[in-house]
Simulated scan of single mutants.
Amino acid sequence: MSDIASFEQGTRRFGRVNWLGLLTLCQREIQRFMNVWTQTLLAPLVTAGLFMVIFSIAIGPRRGDVMGMPFTTFIAPGIMMMTVIQNAFANTSSSIVIAKVQGNIVDTLMPPLSGGEMVLGYLAGGIARGLVVAVVIAVGLGLVLGVWPQHPLVMLAFVLLGAAFLSGLGIVAGVFAEKFDQMAAITNFVVTPLAFLSGTFYSVEALPPVMYEITHLNPIFYLIDGARYGMIGVSDSSPLLGFFIAVASVAAINVIGWRMFARGYRLKA
């Protein structure tokens, strides 16, 4: 009997990975946001469109060109990337916090999933949601503004890195927060300022020296700047430097999330 159990366990964890459990968690996280697509996909697209309309009407005609690009064209990639990272963060953080508040986080903790497998499962949902949002907004920008990606592979790389970074940050925030108001505080006082103060609506070359240096410490700046290069071919910093900083940021934040799951930090009573 023990030999049969050992065989089944070995098959299910082929290569020391619980593929069945991992794929099930990935499917659950993706299906979770797809079931309420009007809230998780349509609403962010409407918000991004409103940003474009408001800035175009209020500032666009008087602002002139930025780095040789019309103002509306310049801010379009930033708005797209900001929407991607906000949705990636919301997907993982809300999934974990809701499960903790409702008391069903045990359904995720009881299966034989390692900390790394849980991180990958939650990341799949956040990255998938961010990628879908990015594709739809990019198509909309192309049809409405005639702005199509000049370096599509570069843009795709930064979109995936941005979604992975904010999904990882959402995992850390979701594990840390014990109730909804704590999660709201992290969103309002950490994620939103980092996203808005990262060159989304302006070139950092126009900032005072102190703010210029502070902005370059913000990893989201490199994500937005890299996406802008991929979309319209201009950037405030080297896309290669931004790529390496983004990769390092993704690795660092997800290692923290892995350690939290592995230790059961604020998850196990």
Rank of each mutant, 00 (worst) to 15 (best):
P112T: 13
M110D: 00
G116L: 07
V136D: 00
S167G: 14
L113G: 12
F189R: 09
L160C: 13
F180I: 15
E117F: 14
A177L: 12
N188Y: 15
E205Q: 12
E178M: 14
M118W: 09
I186Y: 14
P193K: 06
H151S: 10
T187R: 14
G116I: 12
A177C: 15
V204S: 10
L143H: 03
P149V: 06
L120D: 11
V154P: 04
S167V: 02
E178L: 10
V132K: 06
W148L: 02
L113S: 15
L194G: 01
V135G: 08
F196S: 01
I171L: 03
R129M: 02
I186D: 10
L123R: 00
L166C: 13
L145P: 05
S114T: 14
I127Q: 01
G121S: 01
L131W: 14
L153T: 04
G174H: 11
L194W: 07
V204R: 09
V147Y: 05
G115W: 11
A157S: 06
V136F: 04
L197H: 10
L160Q: 04
G168Q: 04
V175T: 13
V119Q: 01
L161C: 06
V144M: 10
G162V: 06
A184K: 12
M118Q: 12
G130H: 13
F165N: 04
P111T: 06
M155D: 04
A138P: 00
G199H: 08
A157I: 11
A124L: 10
G162Y: 03
M155S: 10
E205K: 15
